[in-house]
Amino acid sequence: MVTLGRKSLVSLGAVILLLLATFAAAEAPAAKKRGPVTNLPLPRYVSLKATKANVRRGPSRTHRIDWVFTRKSMPLQITAEYGHWRRVRDIEGAGGWIHYSLLSGVRTVIVQKDMLPLAVRPGEKVAAAAHLEHGVIAKLEECNPDWCRLNAGGYKGWVLKEELWGVEAGEIRD
């Protein structure tokens, strides 16, 4: 029989509590980070509202302009917020700070495969309403676990989610 003193029991209890807390944290789903200004999830996707948007080195007009986005409706990923400024990145990973007034909540995506079939309904062996070229920007309408419904140049249809940039792998949209 082992006899433990009062100090040993307190230490043992602390170790057990620490282990329980560690296991509970490992089992809990990861909480998505929220923006400090909007309380919206980070990262998240938006689109470029303007036909011309200065991308700055920091979150103010006094920071240097690194480049200019010139493709209206281009999807961008917001990675940070500061006041009226959003840090964004594009499909190539280029990023910087943009004033929030130049961004739109309308969701768009970029096609990442050339001649991607736009199917009339979700499925591998389904007739195509059209074929989309690599780099086409389309409006994102809805998504199930594997497929997304797009509107591209008046053509509507479904494509595999993995062929798009501007939508998360597990994202569901109604």
Rank of each mutant, 00 (worst) to 15 (best):
L164Q: 07
F69D: 04
H131W: 10
I91E: 13
C148P: 03
A30I: 03
T38K: 05
A26E: 06
I137T: 14
V46T: 09
D114W: 06
A129D: 09
N54D: 15
S101L: 13
E163N: 15
S73Q: 13
K33T: 14
C148L: 05
V106N: 03
V106G: 00
R56L: 03
M74G: 06
V88W: 03
V167K: 12
W67K: 05
M115S: 12
K125R: 14
L48C: 10
V37F: 02
G154Y: 08
A127L: 12
V136A: 14
R64E: 14
K113C: 01
L42F: 04
G105I: 05
R44E: 05
G58Y: 10
P117N: 05
N144H: 08
G105H: 09
S104W: 01
V106M: 04
S104Q: 02
T108Y: 07
W165A: 09
F69W: 14
Y82Q: 14
G123M: 07
E27F: 15
E163R: 13
V126R: 12
A94F: 07
H63Y: 15
R71G: 00
R121D: 02
K32S: 13
A50F: 03
T51R: 08
V46H: 06
A152H: 12
R86H: 04
L164R: 05
R121N: 04
I65T: 15
I78T: 01
V88P: 04
R44I: 07
V55F: 07
G93I: 00
R57W: 04
A31I: 09
K32Y: 00
V37D: 01
A21D: 06
D146Y: 10
G123S: 11
P122A: 06
L40R: 13
S60W: 04
T79C: 00
L132W: 09
R149M: 07
K156C: 02
A26V: 08
E27A: 15
I78F: 00
E133P: 01
E141L: 13
V46Y: 10
A31T: 12
W158T: 09
W85R: 00
